[in-house]
Amino acid sequence: MAVPSRQRLSAADWTVAAFEALADGGLAAVAVEPIAVRLGATKGSFYWHFTGRDALITAALELWERVDTEEVIAEIDVLPAGLPRLRALIVGAVESRNDQGARAELALQPTARHPLVAPVLARVTRRRLGYLAEQFAELGFSPDEAARRAQLAYTSYLGLAQLAHATPGEADLSPAFLDTMLEVLANPTQPA
């Protein structure tokens, strides 16, 4: 009986599978053997591309950073500055709360101090806060006020994502809620 030939997997295949595992079960779910089974591969295939689990975790975290921060910012950057970008960021972030990137972000929180996770979370947070602050500055806020509003917007997103994850029925994700959130954040007469 002929053994079916296996498809040759790339490092990108392993990275995507690790990212999916991360989103589904956190850092602990990024384990070589279960991912190999999921891919229908051997551990030898893994070691062809990676030196060990830490290298795979690093690749998955870099994928998350690129796709869910840098690519999102690049997409948003084509919109007119100010309210259109800010609205797209807020609506997009809330609407994507169930996608892999958002799930991965929540799954990373319990391991935020892990030596592989901490620097990536720090870079992502700084990049996102900086980009948000730029949008508030475009609306005429001073640098300090823009930074405060950026932090308020980002912590609102994280809190809303956690609320929707933990108690889905309690999170108001309606357009009216998002309009109110944007109005409060972008209104210069509302102190942050």
Score class of each variant (00 low, 15 high):
F19D: 15
S156Q: 10
L185P: 12
A112I: 08
G52W: 09
R149H: 07
V91I: 09
L185Y: 06
L163Y: 08
A104G: 03
A60C: 03
D172I: 06
R53I: 02
A88W: 09
V94K: 07
L132F: 09
P110E: 00
S142Q: 06
R87V: 09
E183P: 01
V30W: 00
M181R: 10
V124A: 13
A164F: 03
L158A: 08
A112T: 10
D24A: 15
L56F: 06
R97F: 11
E170N: 08
G169Q: 14
V16A: 15
R103L: 14
G26Y: 11
L9P: 12
T51P: 10
E70I: 07
A12V: 05
R97K: 12
Q190N: 14
A36E: 09
F19H: 15
R53S: 03
P188K: 03
L22C: 05
R127T: 15
Y47D: 06
T189L: 09
D13P: 09
V37R: 10
A31I: 01
R123S: 10
Q100W: 10
L152H: 08
E62T: 02
L178F: 07
T42I: 01
R85M: 04
D13E: 04
E170A: 14
A36C: 09
Q109I: 07
V30C: 00
P143A: 14
F141P: 04
M1H: 13
E170M: 09
R38Q: 14
R148E: 13
A112W: 07
L27D: 01
L89D: 14
P34H: 09
A12T: 12
P143R: 12
T155I: 00
G26L: 08
R128Q: 14
E145C: 02
P119N: 05
R38S: 13
F46P: 06
V16P: 00
L63W: 05
L129K: 01
